[in-house]
Design a binder for these strands. Structure first.
Lengths: 249, 249
DNA sequence: ACACTTATGGTCACAGCAACCATAACTGTA
DNA sequence: TACAGTTATGGTTGCTGTGACCATAAGTGT
């Protein structure tokens, strides 16, 4: 092992309480396929947890920002060009016991995109595949490290952000119909929405979507107007889920 | 320098692209004093940036969780017992150039509490003091590292969370009047709110606050009922700012 | 008794919403 | 061509929550 290439405080040098750590990014990549919310997993090709499913991710290189690292891993492990999709940091996990190799800090990123391609095998990962996001919560999936926790929290973050931000458009292509956008909400929230009311709310929210002027001809039915993302990120008013069951708080 | 005490992947060992990093937590500590939102700063006692104001924080120790590290720094540098206040991770900053000593990753925590005490000088910090949060945005303050960026983002996070969560109660004591709670919103949003309407919204939001049955006698005026925090965290419906000026999105 | 202050409660007009119905514009088939 | 089927779009109605504003309650000190 080579010595550390960093200078540290005098106090730090004398202390045995602080040690170096390894910095990684892990990606919670969600997309919509066949009207289902899917999450990208890889099968680990190395110990620890060899053979187990895990989040795509890897070490952040020297002189690389977290975001750049996330984009690189997105390309390497999932074959996805990240410049087209929504990438957002959402949490950092560093519990001492989370990785048997030592103190490994992972910064988790949310990556959302429209109908992403079937992933090619990456460089490190033995295999990459889409799994229904619902599997994360029914306990039918056992993941490496604390990735089960991370992905569950990522999923909840997506659901919540759908209400208050325009993040739903990240699941649509460059242009999309209101039907496409509504399907995003319906699939992720797991409940049908009234087309007419949805339309009114979206169009009355300034900056949510912009009409392109073009139309899309469905296989059957009336043509639908096409839209693209607006400039707004925070939705005001928010597009709230009906407070049907459960607690409201 | 002692060798690393961690095992790493074969791939990692061979690579010069990945190096160790140092893990710190930095704290954005906000409180209300004299009807002003204040942020806690320390004056650095060490290079780099010796003598400059900075966020309280420090290295995370081995076998310590991020949260425990944040709580320890809260006690060491600010003399604050963190068990009573709201502590929440909100972002991680790791740009290669952010610290001249090398790759230092900092996980930023939001710490919110009611009228916190004037800080005693900490162990590392030369001096700790409260500064008006408004100073963060008027450019009158120059902070060490990227702390200016971090604190500005923290402030925006607080403002936003006020709308959608019950975080405002974190700025109040164990029990509080609706006037106290309203003052939190008024100070942080910088706009007056109608007492009557505020009352109705808060009481109609299930789980936001619970009446204690006790009263508080102000120096003048009618006694006010006392409340404590409710069980709800997400507010439904949210307590939205009036969409007066500016963009709504 | 009175003014002063603050908490609490109510009214009213209006905006946004859910539920529902109606129409438009395309497809394919008899 | 006529028609059913399908989907997008548009409108109506009753209800709920909101902002602006007014009224009352319950303390203080003079």
């Amino acid at each position: 092992m080579r010595p550390l290439g960093v200078r540290v405080d005098d106090w730090l040098k004398d202390s045995e309480e602080v040690g170096p750590s390894w910095l990684t990014v892990d990606l919670a990549i969600f997309t919509l396929r066949d009207d289902q919310l899917m999450v990208l997993l890889i099968e680990r090709g190395l110990d620890p947890f060899n053979g187990m499913p895990a989040m795509p991710g890897g070490y952040v290189q020297k002189d690389e920002t977290l975001r750049d690292g996330a984009l690189r891993e997105l390309a390497e492990e999932a074959g996805i060009d990240g410049s087209q999709l929504h990438l957002e940091q959402f949490g950092t996990y560093a519990d001492p016991g989370r990785d048997p190799r030592g103190r490994v800090v992972t910064v988790a990123y949310l990556a959302l995109g429209p109908n992403l391609p079937t992933p090619v095998g990456g460089t490190d990962a033995a295999r990459a595949f889409w799994a229904p996001a619902a599997r994360l919560e029914d306990g039918a999936l056992r993941l490496a490290f604390d990735h089960q926790t991370i992905l569950t929290e990522a999923l909840e973050e997506v659901r919540r952000k759908l209400e208050y931000t325009a993040v739903a458009t990240a699941f649509c292509g460059e242009t999309f119909t209101l039907r496409d956008l509504r399907t995003v909400y319906e699939v992720i929230w797991g409940q049908p929405l009234d087309p007419s009311n949805f339309r009114r709310k979206v169009l009355n929210t300034p900056g949510f979507v912009q009409p392109t002027g073009d139309q899309w001809l469905p296989p059957t039915g009336r043509p639908a107007a096409l839209y693209r993302r607006g400039h707004a990120w925070l939705l005001n008013p928010p597009l709230l889920r009906a407070a049907t069951s459960g607690q409201r708080g």
